[in-house]
Nucleic acid binder design. Structure first.
Lengths: 118, 118
DNA sequence: TGTTCATTTGCGTCACTATGCAAGTATACG
DNA sequence: CGTATACTTGCATAGTGACGCAAATGAACA
């Protein structure tokens, strides 16, 4: 859905609909960013105790951060025996960010189009 | 910078470097989102009292929100006589979001490439 | 069943943030 | 210069969020 028709350009300017404060809030904590970074670069599902290494807080706090990220639709959680394996919802996350970028670019009054889709 | 070479794909996974908690935090408030929405759809620079209409808080609070958004690089402020005219930094904002989307998509271990740039 | 390991939950604390009101600053205009 | 308008700042308060610790839950396993 990246290629808009020309009649779509700068029309609804639905920035407010796409920009979700809850979503941004979930990403608005340095420890949660660290967790996301760690999990992203890891390249495989990671359990809570493993992820906990990347931030200095108690593991219970890490657990809460991860739940928060999961509830925000940023991570996926899967129970495996005693462990809980977290993964990044890459498509979801990238898609959301890209949709926001597109919406904002479409709002730009001067251009109405900033997406240089070569 | 949207078209990566193939040797760039899934390499550094610099998600943490791009994902700035401060930036997300600035967007993590519903009233600030409302302000951004209003300003985006307005299509022209708006002054503080004008923008203040879109959220129920005192104008002093609105003023602070706007300063915060400006400091986060999301808005631009320009003084015009008694007024302060705010504008959305569309390119900055869209570019940032797009860069994040790209970085995250590049991290995806299964694909390493989610950007369908048709 | 009892033990151990991984994770979550309850709870109190501390820090930060959003907010409103009042006072202050800056600019235009008479 | 005095006044009006637009905005900002100081300050107090209420609400929220992050945190640590201890206890609870859940799952494997002897």
């Amino acid at each position: 859905m990246n290629n808009r028709n020309d009649n779509t350009r700068k029309s609804p300017c639905c920035v407010g609909a796409l920009l979700d404060a809850r979503f941004f809030r979930a990403l608005g904590d340095p420890n949660r960013i660290a967790l996301l970074d760690r999990l992203s670069s890891c390249g495989r599902p990671c359990c809570v105790s493993e992820l906990s290494e990347c931030c200095p807080t108690d593991i219970s706090v890490t657990s809460r951060h991860l739940v928060l990220l999961r509830d925000a639709g940023i991570l996926d959680a899967e129970k495996c025996g005693k462990e809980v394996r977290y993964t990044v919802r890459f498509d979801e996350l990238a898609g959301k960010l890209r949709a926001m970028a597109d919406a904002i670019a479409n709002c730009c009054p001067s251009k109405g189009d900033t997406t240089k889709e070569t």
